[in-house]
């Protein structure tokens, strides 16, 4: 299996702890070389301010998971160079999708014996709705794919991004991971952890669901100027080291938590002096590892 390399053009985050990339970067910079840092000391107002008030008006009618995705996507696209709509793909991965809308639809269906089921909740219950809304808002006309993966939710999206760029059909891939802290999902997770045998453990049975979204704008390495970051997706092999950022940042294990971890690793690479070399690792339940090595983009001609 061949490894794949991509250039990072921009990134964004919106989670229960970080409302933008700058906030996460501040925390990561303070963490480097230190044993422990309390996030609230670094970011006293971390969860309250929006950098994009106009966007907030636009998304106020959307469901929670779409709002998180839009905020992260908006920041990533603002931080990146302008993309060409016809030559840009959007990939979105969500473990829970718009679950609350699905439940609202089922409630409406069950309560009136099928006669008055809510068309609005039905259209918003479909997993791909989040990505489709985003494509409409951001004007993306390339492939718009909604993905799911139980083991490697981060690396599967990056694999797909690399393949799309290699295919020549697109010049940019906007990748997004988004999930919401649905009350139903949290309750199911709690019951599942209490009721299932340990052998059945999966990300799904995590007992602490947070929320949020992470977005990256990616392009081919050969098309990117030097000076930025390069993501080198490694084959599934045992990784030489595992980042310990998870524990320090106390990231909630919502289903796309790996994406927040990746964002933290990107922030660490951006903050590194000299030549960055940071590893993101994702493990499945059998401890098979995938990793992403973040380094500086090679100089032209090298």
């Amino acid at each position: 299996m061949m490894a794949a390399k991509m250039a990072l053009c921009g990134w964004g985050i919106y989670s229960d702890q970080f409302t933008n990339a700058g906030a996460l970067s501040q925390v990561v910079k303070r963490l480097i070389g230190k044993a422990d840092v309390t996030i609230s000391n670094v970011l006293p107002a971390h969860a309250t301010t929006s950098r994009f008030p106009d966007l907030e008006l636009t998304i106020s009618a959307l469901d929670a998971v779409s709002q998180y995705a839009f905020r992260a996507l908006h920041e990533a696209l603002c931080n990146a160079e302008a993309v060409t709509p016809d030559r840009t793909a959007l990939l979105l991965l969500s473990a829970w999708g718009p679950t609350e809308n699905t439940l609202n639809f089922l409630d409406s269906m069950l309560e009136a014996d099928g006669r008055y089921a809510s068309p609005r909740h039905f259209t918003r219950s479909v997993y791909s709705t989040v990505a489709s809304h985003a494509a409409i808002y951001f004007g993306i006309h390339g492939p718009c794919e909604t993905l799911a993966h139980g083991q490697w939710p981060v690396c599967c999206v990056l694999d797909r991004a690399a393949d799309l760029l290699a295919s020549g059909r697109v010049d940019y891939v906007v990748a997004c991971w988004a999930d919401q802290a649905s009350a139903f999902a949290k309750d199911l997770c709690r019951r599942s952890v209490a009721g299932l045998d340990r052998k059945e453990f999966s990300r799904f049975t995590s007992d602490d669901s947070g929320y949020g979204a992470v977005a990256l704008v990616l392009k081919r390495v050969g098309d990117a100027p030097s000076g930025g970051l390069m993501l080198d997706i490694q084959n599934p092999i045992a990784a030489p080291a595992v980042s310990s950022l998870d524990a320090k940042l106390n990231i909630h294990s919502f289903p796309t938590d790996g994406a927040v971890h990746l964002a933290a690793v990107i922030a660490a690479a951006e903050a590194a002096d000299g030549t960055p070399s940071v590893l993101f690792t994702e493990s499945d339940v059998r401890c098979n590892k995938r990793s992403v090595h973040l380094t500086a983009l090679p100089l032209p001609g090298s």
Binding site: M2, A4, Y127, E145, L147, H149, D159, D163, A166, S167
Partner: peptide, 28 residues
């Protein structure tokens, strides 16, 4: 080998076939 679920409703499996072709083309 590589893979994922595609949830893009009515075009999902056409996209899955396209993605499989891309993965083969990329040598994965």
């Amino acid at each position: 080998g590589p893979g994922y679920m595609n949830l893009t409703t009515c075009v999902g499996s056409a996209m899955a076939i396209g993605a499989a072709c891309d993965a083969i083309h990329a040598g994965r």
